Simulated assay, not measured.
Amino acid sequence: MSPALISADACLTQVEVARWRNGELSSAVDQVAEEVPIALIYNGISHVVMLATPSDLADFALGFSLSEGVLHDKSDLYGVDVVLQSQGVELQMDVATACFMQLKERRRNLTGRTGCGLCGAESLDQALRLPAQTINLSASKILVKSIELAFKTMQSHQPLQQATGATHACAWVSTLGEIQLVREDVGRHNAMDKLIGALAKSPVQPDGFVLTSSRASVEMVQKVANAGISILAAISAPTGLAIRLADTYGVTLIGFLRDNQFVIYTHKHRIQF
């Protein structure tokens, strides 16, 4: 059976499979997560095409634009149209003229140059996309029991993962350990961008932390640091560069989060034992 035609809301596709289990072969139907080319277009100019799960696309448009420095504030985005095409989805954004001119200049400077190969950046400094200032080191403390509670309840907030086993999730968690916002995607970076976009539009309290089902790569630390988020807790491991970046820019980085255990790599003063 061929996968169904993708629509903007189609995050799942049913496929017929042959399953080998306990020495027997049988026919079954599986649900698989969709991965769709999504073009981000600013004032009529295509900037980048990402492969992502076609859900929460308005959040993705805003979050990507903020975390990548295309926009400086949510008010710089005047509107976004989600346009379904035969081969994917276009996110057509109307943005502030000043932001658009900066984006055009960035693209002009890249033309004909050999970049570092990371996200189209032309230099190592640009690739790191560091925040203008460090995170407030006096930010509210988080109780250990709040981190443990969020871990225990995270899976119940991941319907796509439960259905397919193929998606990551990023969640905004209150200081009490309550999961308030969750965004899922086949890509961990996309899930983080969707969450950042949702947070920018949400009235949730600014105190809290981000919990991710993925490893803590440097890009994940970059995105929370640029969003002014002080704590990132990851279920998997961090990288060395992610730890150094988190330490320099004031992000409390937690990895290997499991039942009743985790590792704090930087700025442990924010965790209350």
Rank of each mutant, 00 (worst) to 15 (best):
M1H: 13
S2L: 09
S7C: 03
A10W: 06
T13L: 07
V15L: 07
N22M: 09
D30I: 15
A33I: 06
E35A: 11
I38H: 08
A39H: 10
A39L: 04
H47K: 08
H47F: 02
V48S: 15
L51V: 15
D56M: 00
D59F: 04
F60G: 00
A61V: 03
S67Y: 02
E68L: 08
G79K: 13
V80P: 04
S86P: 10
L91D: 06
Q102L: 13
N109G: 15
N109W: 04
N109T: 06
T111W: 13
T111N: 10
G112M: 05
R113Y: 14
T114L: 09
T114I: 13
G115C: 01
G115M: 06
S123Q: 12
D125Q: 14
D125K: 15
L128D: 11
R129W: 01
L130I: 13
L130C: 08
P131D: 08
P131V: 10
N136M: 09
S138W: 03
A139D: 01
K141T: 14
I142K: 10
S146N: 04
T153A: 04
T153P: 01
S156F: 09
H157S: 11
Q158A: 12
G165P: 03
H168K: 08
A169N: 04
S174F: 03
S174V: 05
L176I: 04
G177S: 01
Q180V: 14
R183Q: 15
R183A: 14
R188N: 08
R188M: 09
M192I: 02
D193K: 00
S202R: 01
S202Y: 05
V204R: 02
D207Q: 10
D207N: 08
G208T: 06
T212G: 11
S217G: 12
E219M: 12
E219G: 11
V224S: 02
N226F: 02
N226Y: 02
S230H: 15
A237K: 13
P238Y: 08
L241W: 04
L241H: 05
I243V: 07
L245F: 13
L245C: 00
A246K: 02
L253E: 05
D259K: 13
Y265T: 00
T266E: 05
